[in-house]
Simulated scan of single mutants.
Amino acid sequence: MTSQTPPPVTVTLVSGPTGSGSIDDHELFYARRALDRFRSRLGRQGLLDLLATDIENGNTFLRESALASNGGFTPGTTVLATRGLTSGEFLAWMEKAFAGDEDALLAAHPEHYVMAPGADGSFNVVENIGPHVCSFFMGGWGTDSMAWAADADELLPESEFPHKMSSNLFLADGTIVGRALTQFGDTADGFTANLTVYVPSSCPADVLEHHLRHYAVEFRNWILTATAARA
């Protein structure tokens, strides 16, 4: 006699709240509100102090992974299709946000801790890379160190994706621990975002998988925020 797997337990909201949305929607709202409260109360330096040990361990992981990979990287790409907004409108919002609206950048993902421009033209990011909290910098635009972008297998035709941005991801000591290549092209009713990240080839597969999910969450939320700002 074979045992049968019991049906999954489900919970359905029948009545009570008068506003629209599922229980998951309500939970997400409260989670974001709580997270924003802690970020605001702690501030940037408070978050850095709280996460100091995590960051040290995360950066050690990235540094050792980069050394073990001997310059090799594994790419992965998240593709998002947007309707109702052009790539130009979105990228104009992005430029303003990255110039100094840290709150908007942080709000796009629960695991964003610091997103701040540096005096040398680089951009400091403290966020999760897989399960590891890391502090790294984005930069290298227009320099010889970015030659890889022109030859990347993931590069899409200029005619279809004219808006391209590429960057090295590096630690404070200069160790290159990743790369990013984002490409945007308009469609008949919006635009497509082709978001590629490169992690050291020695990293476990889940590190890349989780960053592809990370891309989906943060860019979806940035796109929605850009849309709301336009209105």
Rank of each mutant, 00 (worst) to 15 (best):
M1L: 06
P7S: 09
T10G: 00
L13Y: 10
G16E: 10
P17E: 06
T18I: 14
S20E: 13
S22Q: 15
H26T: 10
E27D: 14
E27C: 15
Y30E: 12
A31Y: 13
A31S: 14
R32I: 09
R37S: 13
S40R: 15
Q45Y: 12
L47T: 11
L47Y: 13
D49Y: 01
D54H: 01
E56V: 13
T60L: 12
T60R: 10
T60Q: 11
E64R: 12
S69A: 15
G76A: 13
T77M: 03
T78K: 06
V79W: 05
A81K: 14
G84D: 10
M94C: 03
G100N: 06
D101H: 02
D101G: 01
L105I: 09
L105W: 06
A107Q: 12
H109W: 10
E111P: 00
V114R: 06
P117G: 02
G121N: 13
S122R: 11
S122T: 15
N124T: 12
N124K: 09
V125Q: 11
E127T: 07
H132Y: 15
V133N: 04
C134T: 14
C134F: 12
F137W: 09
G140C: 09
T143P: 04
D144H: 11
D144V: 13
W148H: 02
A150L: 03
D151T: 15
A152L: 04
E154P: 00
E160A: 06
S166V: 01
S167R: 04
N168V: 08
F170K: 04
F170G: 00
L171P: 02
D173K: 02
G178S: 00
T182K: 03
T182E: 09
T182G: 05
Q183P: 02
Q183V: 00
F184H: 00
F184Y: 04
G185F: 05
G185N: 02
D186P: 01
T187F: 00
D189K: 11
A193N: 07
S201T: 04
S201C: 04
C203I: 00
D206F: 11
H210W: 12
L212H: 00
H214I: 04
V217K: 04
N221L: 10
L224Y: 13
A226C: 11
A229I: 09
R230P: 09
R230Y: 11
